[in-house]
Design a protein around this nucleic acid. Structure first.
Lengths: 229, 229, 229, 229
DNA sequence: TATGAATGAGGTTTCATTCAT
DNA sequence: TATGAATGAAACCTCATTCAT
């Protein structure tokens, strides 16, 4: 019955409608990851979710809406889990390293989510800016703590994010193994001005096991006008 | 007559067939940049190139083929020009800074090319690896010259490339101005272990004016099996 | 709660089932008037009636049935009210003038009803013939009273009706004002052979105020085989 | 091969594209007549025209466009033929009688055209007003010649047209025979103030045989905002 | 080579209707 | 009675590709 996707899991205790909607979203994630937002067809989503194509439109006004729901759902869930994982950490150097490494772990927990997130990151400015604002806070914290010697500006933040996304891509493509997260975190810390030894030490510190929890549902998101799909 | 695109320019002294083909490629670049590879339609390409849709298939076996031709053509041309710009430089620190800054300048000379390149970079592994091999050479040179203290591995190279691509995206989206290239180059040098002052100095050194030349034509390219489209 | 339509009003003292049915019919009239029989959708009718779409099929076997019910209901109600308004009039000249003028007034009391009636008139032969039989009686009365010099045949009756429908259309479209009824009645009387002065006088006579009452419910109606939809 | 419709006939000496387009228009007329503009489907039109559904969109941007082309084509052709038939007649009484009778003859030459015209008349204000302007000219001529005693206003013209349309409907529905045209013309003349004997005489005068000729092609037309389909 | 009409599979979306609750 | 999720046929339209000229 395939009710195995993460959205279905989140919705397993909700009403029938919510569960059907979640099944569609799970199917959509899978196809978005494989084919992209544009190439994935509504009919195929419905077929993969094992329901009639008309059913799709009972739950989503149109294709745009499921793209938004899936995208936002993934972003929110990743952000929530990342936040949870970092709640106890105060040191900015640790936080920045943790953010990169944990984010990659989380996004790779379900490669479909990772792939869909990767696509969405280029397509939706809202989502991008939302993620970047968290990053900015930690980078500024590091500057204020005197740990980072580099100036914090938009280019830095964006570049920092690009390094993470590059690592995500490499891992999804199978080019890199699990150690890539630590490696990229180390490079980031070097870039920020953390002394090489400390950068290496912090970035390679053993992380506590990843404990996954499940949560809420999405709302809104509007696509970039320009460089999307 | 629109014979103004870069491919048409390259082909201006070739036979009629080559010139027709080039006009199609110029039209394709424009539409690929605006709509993506999937959404750009063959009919629209032919219309923009001011010829009958059937003519398209005289010059390309199918849509895949023009995507490859355009993509590879752009990559080769960018690589050629970049190479030319760097031919006299020996110092790896200078080379690496120059590569990032010049590449961005070149790719933004024609935003359509930049956009098409950006899309292609994620879609075609061959193209990616081709670009990365040049990078690797310069990074290893820097290590051998004792300028870079960081270990050179695949993750580093890929990360370095991601930083460039992130900057390209930001510039195409209008988020960054022309200074972004120098800024990213500086961040890269810091990451590689170049002392901050030198990194800043080299990355912000005045560049010789960009002199554009025109050249050769493409052949082959196969798309990634997995995370493309 | 919108229980304000004419059918709901008629059914206000009946059982709950009848009232629900009436609410659906009121919603249907509104949408039929706006969109036509074909374009009005069952889901939209139910939504406008503020109930679940499934409820529709508790009260009507299918869409055809509500079209018939609404159509016949409107026709019967218009005929009843027209009849009531004319019950005291004996002179055929007065009756014919009154029929045209009052019918237009009645049909325009609720533009939705007028529009729906207009559409139905071309679509349902039964309804048409039902209306025409009343007309025939008055025309024959006029002939027998010596007021009309024209021969009474099917073409005359139909033509007479067409003049009314044309006026209805013009008024619904906003092309004509309230005076159109008198004008058309005058033209009809001239056509029938009433002397112009008398035609003018009778057609422009002040009408007693329109007093609306409410009444019964529909049953049956079958669509024309040929030139409908 | 069905290349028998009137549009195909008109286009029989034109290029292949025009002939295909005409075949589609002939098929469309047939289906519009039977099912209405809304209910007739593009796929069915293509099927009836014996071509692939995609071919439809080679010749028409969308369904609206073929509705306009067919509608305007019919109206123009009917107007042209009617004009031709009346070119030698000066007497307004004769002209008015001729217009009604000949129009009905023409429209019934091809019942599909008649039916499509009937539908279009209610749906497209432009078309309606175009036809009415010809009518107005003849009615004013009659007034100026002293033949009509009635006042010429919008309601009169519209009513006059409604009488014709009513007769067309009756003939299409099979309710009336060929004599209906003369009968309606007589009623119209009576309405206008022509003395009954003259009205009868003129309306029943033998008409010269109908000689059909073929002609030009359509351009433009926009649908009514309000009371259409 | 070049043309452009023709094809038909497949995309998104709507909608009358059914059915389990 | 009432609900509303589910269905699947069918609507409009797009597009890569073929083919006769």
């Amino acid at each position: 019955m395939l009710a195995t996707g993460l959205f279905s899991n989140e919705a397993r205790n909700l009403g029938k409608s919510a569960r059907t909607r979640a099944r569609l979203m799970d199917a959509a994630v899978e196809l978005f990851a494989r084919d992209g937002f544009k190439a994935a067809s509504v009919n195929e989503i419905a077929k993969l979710a094992e329901m009639a194509n008309g059913t799709f439109y009972v739950h989503f006004r149109d294709k745009r809406e499921i793209v938004q729901a899936v995208t936002l759902g993934i972003a929110q869930e990743l952000a929530r889990q990342l936040d949870e994982a970092m709640v106890d950490i105060d040191d900015a150097v640790e936080r920045v390293s943790m953010a990169t490494r944990r984010f990659l772990d989380l996004a790779l927990t379900s490669p479909d989510w990772g792939r869909a997130f990767f696509r969405a990151a280029w397509a939706f400015r809202d989502l991008r800016e939302n993620m970047l604002s968290f990053l900015r806070a930690d980078l500024e914290r590091g500057r204020d703590q005197g740990a980072f010697t580099v100036e914090i500006d938009d280019v830095l933040i964006d570049t920092f994010a690009s390094m993470i996304m590059g690592a995500l891509f490499g891992r999804l493509a199978g080019d890199f193994g699990p150690e890539a997260g630590a490696r990229v975190a180390e490079l980031q810390l070097r870039m920020l001005g953390v002394p090489p030894q400390r950068a290496h030490a912090v970035a390679n510190r053993q992380l506590p096991e990843l404990r996954l929890t499940i949560a809420a549902l999405p709302k809104q998101l509007k696509p970039d006008p320009v460089p999307s799909r």
